[in-house]
């Protein structure tokens, strides 16, 4: 009988009892061996370098760095590693972010042993596996604009820029927009900061060239 390659597992979990319990369960699976339990997020990266694990169960709540930070760190260095998030949190923001950062699966701590097995022996690594408690619905975010690519200028800021382009002073602006000079100043500061342009002339020409007003 040829020796099948043992699947080496690392558990990153700061709750000792849970970690030990998980270890017991995993070790019972055929061909699976838990190599180490790590509690501190700061130590994971180093341990991975030495241990050469195949699978890592990663909690989000850790001592030191939190799970997502660890995830980001180790995914960069280990592209083949099967990373399974195992946490009590069900929040969408975490599920989505873990997916974005490269996790292969996301299990809640109330998952079943079957789901555990499924995640462990995950063949299709492109498909993001989540346990039942999580609704993995695709989000249509066409209505929203989070300015990664294009810097957004709000409508009020556009008003400010229009008036500036016409050559109005700040106090005139305040009167036109029916607000205080303080607010006008803040608008300007924000615009300058966003675009990284502080010179008024440059600002106007940038804005005109890019059809912002």
């Amino acid at each position: 009988m040829s020796t099948k390659k043992l699947i080496k597992v690392i558990i990153v979990e700061d709750q000792k009892l849970f970690a030990n319990g998980l270890k017991e369960i995993l070790n019972k699976f055929e061909g699976v061996e838990v190599a180490k339990i790590i509690e501190n997020g700061n130590l994971v990266s180093k341990e991975l370098d030495t241990l050469k694990a195949d699978v890592i169960f990663l909690d989000l709540n850790l001592i030191g760095k939190n799970g997502l930070e660890v995830l980001q760190e180790i995914r960069e260095q280990h592209s083949d590693l099967l990373i399974i998030i195992l946490t009590m949190y069900q929040e969408k923001v975490l599920v989505e972010k873990a997916k974005k950062l490269g996790a292969n699966a996301y299990l809640t701590k109330d998952a079943t042993v079957e789901e555990l097995k499924k995640a462990l022996f995950l063949k299709d690594t492109d498909h993001y596996f989540t346990s039942k408690a999580i609704t993995n619905t695709k989000q249509i975010d066409s209505k929203n604009n989070f300015d990664d690519n294009k810097i957004l200028i709000t409508d009020r800021e556009k008003e400010v820029l229009k008036c500036l382009a016409k050559g109005k002073t700040k106090s005139e602006l305040a009167e036109i927009l029916k607000t205080s000079t303080n607010t006008v100043n803040i608008h300007l500061k924000n615009i300058q900061r966003k675009l990284n342009i502080y010179n008024p002339q440059e600002l106007i020409s940038y804005v005109l060239n890019n059809n912002i007003i």
């Binding site: 929040e91 975490l94 989505e96 972010k97 975010d141 209505k143 929203n144 300015d147 709000t154 966003k194």
Partner: peptide, 26 residues
């Protein structure tokens, strides 16, 4: 854990889903 920005973004996405009001984050 998720981070300030991601949490706000997710919150706004969920909000738009329910309300239909477009949201922009800078």
């Amino acid at each position: 854990i998720a981070g300030f920005r991601s949490t706000i973004e997710q919150f706004l996405l969920d909000f738009t889903d329910i309300s239909g009001i477009r949201t922009n984050l800078s």
